[in-house]
Design a protein around this nucleic acid. Structure first.
Lengths: 235, 235
DNA sequence: CGGTGCGTTGACATTTCTCAACTGTTGTGG
DNA sequence: CCACAACAGTTGAGAAATGTCAACGCACCG
């Protein structure tokens, strides 16, 4: 409520090229909030009062279907923002949000005053347009991913778009969710995910190492993602 | 290139509450374009030079995978806009676009001058934010849809979110794509789609009438969309 | 120590895909 | 106007992928 240091915002991708005045104005509407794992930020259907930036830790956005089935929409790490669209042009949050780590540091920006500021501040509005475009691109990618009909294609597609680190013989990709959640993210069961990884290991394509994956044969992973390779016959 | 009547823009949802000056400025960057079915508007990878509004007719956005497999991303009818995100913050179009009907009337807005205008025109930027938010909500919905694991749940979910018309005993939902494309849109094969519809017909839930669907039992369709009902045992 | 929950594996049921044949429609050219 | 090709849509039979249920190991945490 009382505002934060503008410098805390400067590091965020959206505001990198924002004039000092705009940045200061936004900082005045923001407050820093530190959460513990499991702490809820907002619930689906609740009036959209603020949007957020992740400074450290992680946040999960999800919906609840009937019978408590949890549909994970996104995992967000440092630098990402969320709920801008809700605050800017929707009456209520379209999903639930909880912090995943202790501590998770967030910048919380009050919605109503931000909306007012936006109309008169072109530079800020352009920054928000860029931010929303980022979300759009991400979701479009996700749609493409989910349109793939085979489980291994979806997994391969997903993995190939994660930040990875070259590591000796292969590519190390950190899995930033529990396998259970990753499975749901990719519209498959945990069992299927486990078996796909098993097959990849047997085929020498990749090796599951607890919380990360070591890809040994990038080309074949690529082929799998595009449905060019099949992997059934070659047990 | 030479501009169009501002009144042509006023009808579009994005610009409903835009000041006269902004509207006129955009109109100056726009031109009216009439296409025939099959006419390409832009190709994937091409530099994003303009974005569009549909005035009449319809447009299809799609990607091409290897081997010419066409992945339909969206069908757009009158009032919708597309490629704003590409023009505003991406170097190239992320998909192909073609007109689907003869005639299809479009408003084409030149990208570069629009971007310049945007920075200084807060009202316009806010309008674009609203437009992008609409896209975001639509894509989020699509992600949720594709996350459903059963074919009939995806189809039910999809149908329940289409504009429909009450019609005597039931609900008439126009299918705005060929069944072949609808199937791909829902990550299933045309055969599976056909069989699901057959089962619904046998169960008295809905009746496929060529290019439209007559829903007889909305409640059960709802149940199917949420995985509450199964429809296997009750042939 | 127990408990709780994730991840793996196996056996089995079911859905969905694949391939193929057949129908009906549409549009074209004779 | 008809014959024909081309293509969407349907249906069937069999194969393959995936989901379901259950058991087990294992780590983590009280």
């Amino acid at each position: 409520m009382s505002g934060i240091e503008p410098s805390l915002l400067r590091g965020l991708p959206h505001f990198r090229s924002l004039p000092e005045a705009s940045l200061a104005a936004v900082a005045r509407l923001a407050r820093l909030r530190t959460c513990r794992a499991g702490e809820a930020l907002f619930a689906e259907g609740e009036p959209a009062r603020a949007f957020y930036f992740v400074r450290s830790g992680a946040v999960k956005l999800y919906r609840l279907g009937r019978e408590g089935r949890e549909q994970v929409l996104h995992h967000l790490g440092p630098g990402r923002s969320f709920a801008e669209a809700a605050v800017l042009s929707m009456p209520a949050y379209p999903a639930h949000a909880v912090a995943l780590e202790t501590p998770t540091e967030l910048v919380e920006v009050a919605g109503a005053p931000f909306r007012e500021r936006l109309a008169g501040d072109g530079e800020l509005a352009v920054a928000m347009v860029a931010s929303l475009s980022m979300w759009l691109a991400g979701l479009a990618d996700r749609v493409e991913e989910l349109s793939l009909t085979s489980a291994s294609a979806r997994l391969a597609h997903h993995l190939l778009r994660r930040p990875a680190r070259r590591e000796g013989e292969g590519l190390a990709i950190p899995l930033e969710m529990a396998k259970k959640e990753l499975a749901q993210h990719l519209a498959m069961t945990p069992e299927t995910l486990s078996r796909v990884l098993r097959r990849w290991q047997d085929a020498g394509i990749a090796r599951s190492q607890g919380t990360r994956l070591l890809v040994l044969d990038e080309q074949r992973l690529d082929a799998l993602a595009e449905g060019r390779e099949d992997l059934s016959g070659r047990a």
